[in-house]
Simulated scan of single mutants.
Amino acid sequence: MEALILQMLETFKELSYIGIMLALTFEFVPAELVLPLAGYWVYEGDINLFGAIFAGSIGGVLGPLTLYALGRYGGRVAIIKFGKYFFIKEEHINKSDEFFEKYGGSVAFLGRFIPGVRTAISIPCGMSKMNVWKFILYTYLAMLPITAIYVYLGYRLGPQWENAGEIFSQYANYLLIPIVILIIWMIVKRRKLSTQ
């Protein structure tokens, strides 16, 4: 499967930045594969680092936007029926629903940093008819640092770009610590507001 995806990505390479955006629009193509590979293309001199990060961040919004639309216009029944085509199981939807119930619209940002919630979080955002512009903004703000790290790792690793995911996971906790602090702060703030 990975070999097939890599072959497809080589076709996208010919489309340059638009190819990166398109590759990330399909939720079945892992960003963990596309972004370091884009970094390798930077290393090879085919594209610019900042252009790759920008294109990757836009593509990182387009993919979740398709799931948002599925949630908004298809509802839970359609998601359970068609979610398998996006590698989304009902348990992912349930986890995302619970997360959305706890944290509201901010999950469009926070959920991107949590494995098991990351992909499916767009669905409850759509089902709750969250403002689409707010959803796009939150998703972009979350995708920008993740994209930048993966593309930069791919660039620095050069021909060993496939090791980027392993390296990212070693340092992911340093990225997650400020997110956890933000979540705790939001919970405390929400509880204070509900008791007033």
Rank of each mutant, 00 (worst) to 15 (best):
G158S: 11
K192C: 04
N131K: 00
G51W: 13
L70A: 04
P64T: 08
G74I: 13
F50L: 15
I80P: 05
K134W: 11
P64Y: 11
F86Q: 05
A164G: 06
Q170V: 13
S57E: 11
L24R: 00
E162W: 08
E90C: 07
L175G: 11
V117L: 06
G39S: 03
G63H: 08
M127T: 01
Y40N: 09
N94Y: 08
M186D: 07
L67I: 08
W185H: 02
L176F: 15
G56Y: 07
S194A: 11
I146Y: 10
A52W: 13
Y140V: 02
G111V: 12
S122D: 06
G19I: 15
V117P: 00
V151R: 12
R190D: 12
G19P: 04
A164W: 06
A31R: 13
L37P: 00
G19V: 15
L65N: 00
Y73M: 07
Y17D: 05
N94V: 14
I123K: 02
Q7D: 14
I177L: 07
G51M: 12
S122Y: 06
A120D: 05
K189C: 08
L33K: 03
V77R: 12
L33V: 11
Q170K: 11
G154V: 12
L157Q: 01
S169K: 10
G154M: 10
T139F: 09
G105M: 13
G39C: 05
L182K: 00
I179M: 05
